[in-house]
Write a protein that binds this DNA or RNA. Structure first.
Length: 298
DNA sequence: TCTCAGGGGCGAT
DNA sequence: ATCGCCCCTGAG
C-alpha cells in the first residue's frame, strides 16, 4: 500500500455521502471503482494508505480525485458564516468535495433522477456487474463502472435489467453523444456557464444533474445542485419561500456562499439529510462482499 | 399488500 | 412557464 499524508479528511462523510455512489466501506477499508480503476483506501491517523488497480501506484489520480491541493481551512472560514453552517460543519467535520471522473459522474446522476441514493447505489452496482470490467486482485474482486462505449451499444434489456427504468434510454443516448462529440476531452476547458449549457443538451440532463456534474466532477466551486434536500435547507433553515424556482434557489446559494458554494451546499445537504435518516439502520454491501463491514447510516 | 417519496427530466399544453 | 407522467426501489 502507498501512503499519503492527509490532514483533516473525513473519508466516511466524503466517500459515502451523497456526492458519489461508487464507494463501500468494508472492514477498515473503503473500496471504490471508476471506469478505469478500482481503488482501495484506508486511513490511519494522518496517513492515507491506498492502492489503485489494475494500474498500481497512481498517485496523480489519487491527489486529483481527493482534491488534496485545496486549502481546506480557507474554505471553511469562508463558508462558516452563520449558525446553520456552523452546526453542519460540526456534524461532519472535515467533509470534502471530490473531483470525480466526468463520464461516470454524468451517468451516475442521470440515473439518480427521482430516486433515493440507496437505490442509485444499487443500480450502479448492478450495471457494473453486468457491463463493467472485472478486476481481481489478491483477495478482492472489483467490477468497474461500465465504459462509455459499452453503455452506448448495450442492449436496452441489459440496461433495464439493472432496474433503471426509463433512464436506460437517456443513459445510452448520452453515452452515444459523448462518443460522437468528444465532449469529455473538451468539457474542462469551458467556463461554468458554457459547460452548463452544453450539459443541458444531453439526454436525461436537466438543471439539477448539470449542477451535480459541475461541482462533483468539474470542480466548479461556485455551484451547488439544489435537490429536494437543498430545497428543505432553504425553506426550513433559511426561511425562503418554498415556491422559488430551481434557478432562483440555485442563485441564492451562489450569492450567499460565493466562491465556495459547492462546499457549503454539501455540508448543508449532509446535515439536513441526516436528520431524517438517522433511524434507518444499517445497509448491506450491494456487491455481496464478505461480512464484517460496519453498519452505515443512510 | 399497500402507499409514498426518492439528490428530476421530458414532452405536451 | 406549467404540469402530468415516466420506471423502479426502499421504507413504513
Amino acid at each position: 500500500m502507498n501512503k499519503l499524508k492527509v490532514e483533516k479528511y473525513n473519508l466516511d462523510a466524503t466517500l459515502l455521502g451523497g456526492q458519489s455512489f461508487s464507494w463501500d466501506l468494508i472492514g477498515e477499508s473503503y473500496y471504490g471503482f471508476t471506469q478505469a480503476r478500482a481503488i482501495k483506501l484506508r486511513q490511519a491517523g494522518e496517513n492515507l494508505f491506498w492502492q489503485t488497480y489494475p494500474k498500481r501506484n497512481d498517485e496523480e489520480f489519487m491527489r486529483k480525485y481527493l482534491r488534496l491541493e485545496t486549502d481546506y481551512s480557507e474554505i471553511l472560514s469562508a463558508i462558516n458564516k452563520d449558525e446553520h453552517m456552523k452546526r453542519a460543519i460540526e456534524q461532519n467535520p472535515n467533509l470534502r468535495l471530490l473531483r470525480q471522473d466526468f463520464e461516470q459522474t454524468l451517468f451516475s446522476f442521470i440515473l439518480s433522477t427521482n430516486r433515493s441514493i440507496k437505490s442509485v447505489r444499487t443500480a450502479v452496482r448492478k450495471l457494473a456487474r453486468k457491463l463493467g470490467e472485472k478486476v481481481v486482485v489478491e483477495n478482492d474482486t472489483f467490477y468497474l463502472f461500465p465504459k462509455t462505449e459499452v453503455l452506448a451499444f448495450a442492449p436496452l434489456e441489459d440496461l433495464l435489467s439493472c432496474g433503471i427504468g426509463y433512464r436506460a434510454g437517456y443513459l445510452r443516448k448520452t453515452a452515444q453523444s459523448l462518443l460522437e462529440s468528444g465532449l469529455s476531452r473538451e468539457i474542462m476547458n469551458y467556463k461554468e456557464g458554457t459547460a452548463r449549457k452544453i450539459l443541458l443538451w444531453l439526454a436525461g440532463v436537466g438543471p439539477k444533474v448539470a449542477d451535480c456534474v459541475l461541482c462533483f466532477s468539474l470542480g466548479f466551486d461556485t455551484v451547488t445542485p439544489v435537490d429536494v434536500w437543498g430545497k428543505r435547507v432553504l425553506n426550513s433553515l433559511y426561511g425562503l419561500n418554498p415556491d422559488l424556482k430551481y434557478d432562483e434557489m440555485r442563485n441564492w446559494f451562489k450569492d450567499y456562499f460565493d466562491k465556495y458554494t459547492s462546499w457549503a451546499g454539501q455540508f448543508l445537504f449532509e446535515y439536513i439529510r441526516s436528520e431524517k435518516i438517522e433511524t434507518n439502520g444499517s445497509w448491506r454491501d450491494p456487491r455481496g462482499f464478505s461480512p464484517g463491514m460496519k453498519p452505515r447510516k443512510f
